[in-house]
Design a protein around this nucleic acid. Sequence first.
DNA 1: TTGACTTCGTTGCATATGAAACAAATAGTG
DNA 2: CACTATTTGTTTCATATGCAACGAAGTCAA
Lengths: 147, 147
Amino acid sequence: MPKTLPDFDLEHYLPYRFTVLAARLSAELAKSYKNDFGISMPEWRVLLNVGYSENPSIRDIERRVSLEKSKVSRAAAKLEAKGFITKQTDNSDRRLLKLALTKQGAELLSALIPIARSFQAQLDEILGAHEGELQHALDLLTEKLDD
Amino acid sequence: MPKTLPDFDLEHYLPYRFTVLAARLSAELAKSYKNDFGISMPEWRVLLNVGYSENPSIRDIERRVSLEKSKVSRAAAKLEAKGFITKQTDNSDRRLLKLALTKQGAELLSALIPIARSFQAQLDEILGAHEGELQHALDLLTEKLDD
DNA sequence: TTGACTTCGTTGCATATGAAACAAATAGTG
DNA sequence: CACTATTTGTTTCATATGCAACGAAGTCAA
C-alpha cells in the first residue's frame, strides 16, 4: 500500500455499504423467486407494483421503483406472456398502458408476499430497537435524493 | 387492487429500500467515473481494493467486496490493460494472483478518492446526528449476513 | 389546421452479467 | 508415492442490461 494514497474509510463509505448489503439481501430472495417461481427480480418488483397500485402505467412504475423504463417494459412483457398481468391502453391517454393483475398474478403475488414478510421479520429481529432509526435515516436519504 | 392480496408495507421493506438507495447513490458516481475517468463501477471497486489491501488476489476481492469472481477477473483484466494495476502470480501458491497498483493506478485512485469523500461528506450532512445509528444498524445486518 | 415539440412504451444494438465448464495448481488420502 | 478432490482464475455461452432511436399519441401555439 503506497504511502502516497489519501486516507479513505471504505468500511463506512455509504454508497459501498448500501450496494453490498442490497446485493446480499436480494441474492437469496432472487434465487428463491427464480427457482421456485420462475420469476426474476425486475418481474417481482413490477408485479408488486401492479398489485399494490391502481392500474399503474410503465412510467408510473419506472418512477416509483427507480427501474429503467426499458427494464419495466421488458419485465411487464414477460409477466404478460406468463399470464400474470394484463396490458390495456388507457382511453383517456392512449399513450399510457394500464397494467392489472390477472387472477393467476394475484395468486402468485399472494404466494410471494409471505416470503418477503418473513424475510423482513428476520431483519426486524436482527435490528431490534435500532430498526426505527434505520428507517428514519433511510427516509432522510431518500427524501434528499428525490429533489 | 384486489381485496384478496395480503397486506404488505413496501415502503419499509428493507431489501427494496436498500436496492433503490444503492442504485440511486451509485448512479451519479458511476456516471462521473465513467465519463470523466473511463472506469466502470466494478473497476472502481477493484481498484479501491487493490489500493487499500496488501496485494490482494482475485478471490480476496471477491470475498471482501461481494463481487462475483468472474466480475472481479474481468475488471482486473481491464484495469491491467489500461495500465492501472499489475497481475503477478504468487510464488507461495501459484494459483493465486497478487494484484498491485501501478504508478498510474495510484494517481487515478488519488484523483477518485476526493470525489468519493466529498460525496460521503454530503451524505454526512444530510444524516447529521443520525449517521452513527445508521452505521450501527448496517453493522448489525452485515455481521449477521456474514454467517 | 398545421407543424414543432414532448411524452410514452418498445426495440435494436453493443456491452455487461451470472453460471457453468475448464485448465492449472494445490491439498488430502490411501 | 499415486489418485482423487478442491481451489483459483479465466473463458464460454446464453441472457440481461442501458442507452439511443423509433413510432404513436398528445400538447401547444400560431
